Amino acid sequence: LDMDCLPYGWEEAYTADGIKYFINHVTQTTSWIHPVMSVLNLSRSE
């Protein structure tokens, strides 16, 4: 699993305190969880 590779439309950013988060420019949303990890967690719960 390549954690450096973000899906299309996603960008890694940091808060003023240096905390990493992710921006989805396609849906105009943000997430604290890496988008690949959130997809993996969803697929495990099914």
Rank of each mutant, 00 (worst) to 15 (best):
R44L: 08
T27M: 14
Y14C: 07
T27V: 02
S45W: 01
V26M: 10
Y8Q: 12
Y8E: 15
L1S: 15
N41V: 05
D2L: 09
I19E: 15
C5I: 12
I23L: 07
H25S: 13
L40P: 13
S31P: 03
T27G: 11
A16H: 10
I19Q: 15
P7D: 07
Q28E: 08
L6K: 11
S38V: 08
A13Y: 01
Y8R: 10
C5G: 12
D4V: 04
E12T: 08
E11W: 05
H34I: 05
L42W: 10
Y8W: 10
N41K: 06
V26N: 08
K20A: 05
S38R: 09
M3C: 14
L40C: 11
H34Q: 07
T30K: 05
T29S: 09
D2C: 05
Y8M: 10
P35V: 01
S43Y: 02
I33T: 12
A16M: 08
S43K: 02
M3A: 12
E46T: 11
C5L: 09
S31C: 05
A13F: 00
Q28M: 13
S31Y: 01
A13V: 05
Y21F: 01
V26I: 12
D17H: 05
H25V: 06
H25F: 08
A16N: 10
W32T: 02
I23R: 11
V26F: 10
W32G: 06
D2T: 10
T29M: 03
I19L: 14
L42R: 14
F22E: 03
I33L: 11
G18D: 07
C5H: 12
G18Y: 03
N41L: 05
L6D: 09
T27Q: 10
T29C: 14
N41F: 00
H34T: 01
C5A: 14
R44W: 08
D17M: 01
V26G: 13
S38I: 02
Q28D: 09
T15R: 05
L40M: 13
I19A: 15
V36W: 09
G18W: 08
Y21R: 00
T27C: 13
C5K: 13
V39E: 14
D2F: 02
Y8S: 14
D2Y: 07
M3E: 14
P7M: 03
S43G: 13
V26L: 08
Q28T: 03
T29E: 09
M3Y: 09
T27D: 12
E46F: 10
M37I: 09
F22T: 09
K20N: 07
W10P: 04
P35C: 00
H25A: 01
M37K: 15
E11G: 03
Y14D: 00
I33Q: 13
Y21A: 00
H34M: 04
P35H: 03
G18Q: 06
T27I: 03
D4L: 06
Y14M: 07
S43T: 11
N24H: 10
W32L: 08
L6C: 09
V36A: 15
S43I: 07
E11C: 02
T15G: 07
S38G: 14
T15Q: 05
H34W: 00
K20E: 00
S45L: 08
E12L: 03
N24D: 06
L6V: 08
Q28W: 05
A13C: 06
K20Y: 04
Y21T: 01
V26E: 13
S43V: 09
H34C: 09
V26C: 14
Y8V: 13
P7K: 06
S38F: 08
N41I: 03
G9L: 06
M37P: 07
G9Y: 03
I23M: 04
N24I: 00
A13R: 08
Y8P: 14
N41S: 11
H34D: 07
F22D: 03
L1T: 13
V26T: 14
L40R: 13
L1R: 02
I23Y: 11
I23Q: 03
S45T: 12
S45Q: 10
L6I: 00
A16E: 12
I23E: 00
L40A: 12
A13I: 00
Y14Q: 10
W10L: 02
T29R: 07
S38K: 09
L1C: 00
D2K: 10
Y21D: 00
R44Y: 12
D4I: 06
R44D: 14
A13M: 02
C5E: 14
H25Q: 11
W32N: 10
N24T: 01
I33G: 11
K20H: 09
A16Q: 11
H25K: 14
N41R: 08
N24W: 07
W10I: 07
N24S: 01
H25Y: 00
K20W: 05
T30L: 08
S45Y: 10
G9T: 02
E46G: 14
R44K: 11
E46L: 06
Y8H: 12
G9V: 05
N24Q: 01
W10C: 00
L42D: 13
H25M: 00
C5M: 11
K20R: 11
L40F: 10
E11F: 07
P35A: 00
E12M: 10
I23H: 02
T15P: 08
L1P: 09
S31V: 09
W10M: 01
I33E: 15
V36E: 15
A16G: 09
E11I: 08
V39Y: 02
L1F: 11
N41C: 11
M37R: 15
Y14L: 05
T15Y: 06
A13P: 01
L42G: 14
S43H: 13
D2W: 03
P35R: 01
H34P: 11
V26D: 12
L1M: 14
G18C: 01
D2M: 10
A16S: 13
I23D: 05
E12V: 14
I33H: 12
Q28L: 00
D4T: 08
H34K: 05
L42M: 12
T27E: 06
G9C: 01
Y14A: 06
E12K: 00
F22C: 06
Y21I: 01
M37A: 14
N41Q: 08
S31N: 00
D4R: 07
L6W: 01
S31L: 03
I19D: 15
W10S: 03
D4N: 12
T30G: 06
S31Q: 05
Q28H: 11
E12A: 04
E46C: 15
Y21V: 00
G9I: 09
Y14N: 00
D2A: 09
M3Q: 13
A13E: 01
G18V: 02
M37Y: 09
E46M: 00
I19N: 15
E11D: 08
K20V: 05
W10K: 04
I19S: 15
I19M: 15
N41G: 11
F22N: 03
Y14R: 09
